Amino acid sequence: MQKIETLESGNYYHIYNRGINSENLFKENRNHEYFLMLYTKHIDPIAETLAWCLLKNHFHLLVRIKTFEEILKSHKDYEIKKIIPAHQSFGNLFNAYTKAINKGYNRHGALFERPFKRKLISNESYLRSVIKYIHYNPVNHGFCEHPIEYPWSSYSACISEKSTKLKREKVISLFENIENLKSSHNEKENFTSLEEFLNL
């Protein structure tokens, strides 16, 4: 039986999943927008986001789970009783999204495979590889020729100066500077070994 990684505070995780039976999770643009709205509601309070990408039938997220002290700092005193385990916050996100899709498209039952996949990221080299892998996912699946062309990922936010909740400074620092980040994303890469590790 597959061991399920516990989401522990202070650690980085690559979180990913697909639609059950490869069903499309995102049928139109408003679905992406609604998922991101729910993500802000359920995940922003308990995790920092370094990268994300939403494809038609799957998604990828790179997050750092906040410590209890960090979560407390962002909560008002009367909200403290609402703090729940990180895996439950992700579960609430997926459940809320499933309910909306079921209602909007006259379907029923599970939408995502269970349990959702997660991999601990243990070093900066692995962090860089996963960031690039996530941003290159639309290229690898033939949706575009460069990550900048795909609207439903964090790459544009990484190289923009616009306000963002993404941990842009952390991402840039992992590549040393924004020029290295861009040049790295201009080079195609073989992600076979990473995909084998992730069981994709």
Rank of each mutant, 00 (worst) to 15 (best):
Y133R: 05
K188W: 13
E33T: 09
S173I: 05
T40I: 06
E5H: 06
K99S: 04
F116L: 06
E161S: 11
S125P: 03
G104A: 12
V63R: 02
E70L: 02
A100K: 11
N199C: 06
S153G: 12
Y133N: 00
F68L: 09
E189N: 13
S163M: 11
F116D: 01
E145A: 03
F35H: 10
E33D: 11
E169H: 06
K73I: 07
K165E: 09
H75L: 14
R64T: 07
N95P: 00
H87V: 13
E69S: 14
D44E: 03
S154M: 09
S153C: 06
S125T: 09
I43V: 04
Y16H: 09
K188I: 01
C53S: 13
I80W: 15
R64Q: 10
I83Q: 03
I131V: 15
N177P: 13
I84V: 13
E196H: 14
R18G: 07
N140M: 06
L120Y: 08
A100E: 08
L50E: 07
Y39W: 02
L50I: 01
L38F: 07
A51W: 07
W52M: 09
K117D: 01
Y155W: 08
I178K: 15
L7Q: 00
W152K: 00
L50K: 09
A86S: 10
K103I: 11
L200N: 11
V130F: 14
I46N: 03
E79H: 13
F112T: 00
T164H: 09
N140S: 04
G104K: 14
R114M: 05
T192K: 10
N24Q: 04
K56Q: 06
S173F: 09
Y78Q: 13
P45N: 02
S173L: 12
E195P: 07
R114W: 05
T98F: 10
K182L: 12
K182V: 11
S156K: 13
Y97D: 00
H87S: 14
F175S: 05
N140E: 07
F197S: 10
F94K: 02
F197V: 08
T192W: 01
Y39T: 13
E70S: 02
K81F: 15
G104F: 12
V139I: 12
I83F: 06
Y16A: 02
F143N: 00
V63Y: 05
L166E: 01
F191P: 00
N190H: 02
D77H: 05
N106Q: 09
